[in-house]
């Protein structure tokens, strides 16, 4: 079913005023599955078109909705979503946007990077999927002007040797460039309260370029505090959270979901090759993961990329969905 454009645009036009230089609001919204019963919990997808881009929004139903008029309910919900999504955020000037150093990730972000003073959430769909590796790869590139990296680690399980190029200067040509190791301060708070306090202090400090924190439980008010703190400080806050937090409301400017991808090579060939030969070149491979931009505050957003992290160098690039040459080579029995 299609909602008429006038109906969609009205509330927004009233809010933003006639002179606002905004791109046209979604011209139409089409609901899939709207005839389905809404008496179950589940999700309903709505599709909209913005120029050439198809944007999908998902409405989660946590309680059965025994409404006689499904279409009306969905329409109301869709309107609520659109209100949240008004493109009121002015675009950041391109010279202020900080590149993450991962071109596919930059391409996913509306400004091709993180503007200063933003809170970024990395949700990992399952443990060991590579969200932390991505976050630290980006964090290392976001350090600028002799500013520091603060890691708030309540579990005391952060293991710095896992970071690649820990000791190398950022730009080897300049000897005064310090290494990541020298610029990193790790905080081990004992309670959750302390962790939040330390996180807020660090976000608020203009001398800190990036703050990384593992944090699962986060109340909405606290999240807002963090977001205001990072706006004051002008750094980048990165929260590493589990995928279960996806349904929690969040004030983060960017929400990125990382899902593991099964590697293309079949297990038997990998097993045989690994068991058969333990030569040096079989030691390193690459891992693949899917990165999805779930939400970007004040912007229309969406999209996902599949990435590949090189094991030996830590390099992140777009994944090629073909079996790596080495694997097929090994599968052939070589």
């Amino acid at each position: 079913m299609v909602v008429s454009p006038s109906e969609c645009a009205k509330p927004d036009a009233a809010r933003t005023g006639p002179a606002s230089p905004l791109p046209p609001i979604l011209s139409s919204f089409r609901f899939l599955d709207s005839e389905k019963e809404l008496t179950q919990t589940g999700k309903v997808c709505t599709h909209g078109q913005h120029g050439q881009t198809i944007i999908t929004r998902t409405i989660y139903l946590f309680a059965p909705m025994p409404s006689p008029d499904n279409a009306q309910t969905i329409r109301d919900l869709a309107r609520q979503i659109r209100r949240l999504e008004r493109t009121t955020q002015p675009a950041t000037p391109a010279d202020r946007v900080l590149s993450t150093g991962i071109p596919p990730l930059d391409g996913l972000l509306p400004d091709r990077g993180f503007p200063p003073g933003t809170l970024v959430e990395w949700l990992s769909a399952s443990p060991g999927c590579g969200a932390g590796t991505l976050a630290f790869t980006a964090a290392a590139r976001l350090l600028r002007n002799d500013r520091a990296l603060v890691v708030v680690d309540p579990d005391r399980s952060f293991h710095p040797p896992a970071l690649p190029h820990l000791l190398q200067p950022f730009r080897p040509s300049l000897p005064e460039q310090t290494s990541l190791l020298e610029r990193m301060v790790i905080v081990h708070p004992e309670t959750e309260r302390d962790a939040l306090w330390a996180l807020e202090q660090s976000l608020r400090c203009p001398a800190v370029a990036v703050t990384v924190c593992w944090l699962d439980h986060l109340r909405s008010q606290v999240c807002r505090r963090l977001q205001l703190a990072v706006e004051t400080g002008g750094g980048i806050g990165m929260l590493l959270r589990s995928g279960e937090c996806r349904v929690d409301p969040s004030w983060a400017d960017f929400r990125l979901l990382v899902e593991p991808l099964a590697s293309m090579s079949s297990s038997s060939s990998a097993f045989l090759s690994a068991a058969g030969s333990l030569s040096a070149d079989s030691t390193w491979s690459s891992r693949q993961l899917r990165l999805e931009l779930l939400h970007c505050r004040g912007r229309l957003s969406g999209g996902a990329v599949e990435l590949e992290i090189d094991d030996a160098t830590g390099h992140v690039r777009l994944a090629s969905r073909m079996a790596p040459a080495a694997d097929s080579y090994r599968a052939a029995g070589a």
């Binding site: 020298e182 081990h188 330390a198 203009p206 001398a207 800190v208």
Partner: peptide, 25 residues
Amino acid sequence: HTDQEFARLIDRLSSRLGRQQVVRT
């Protein structure tokens, strides 16, 4: 200015959480 701000942050964190909790690697 940045340098000073950073020193203050470390002071604050260390005085509240304890010296051993704010560390370098």
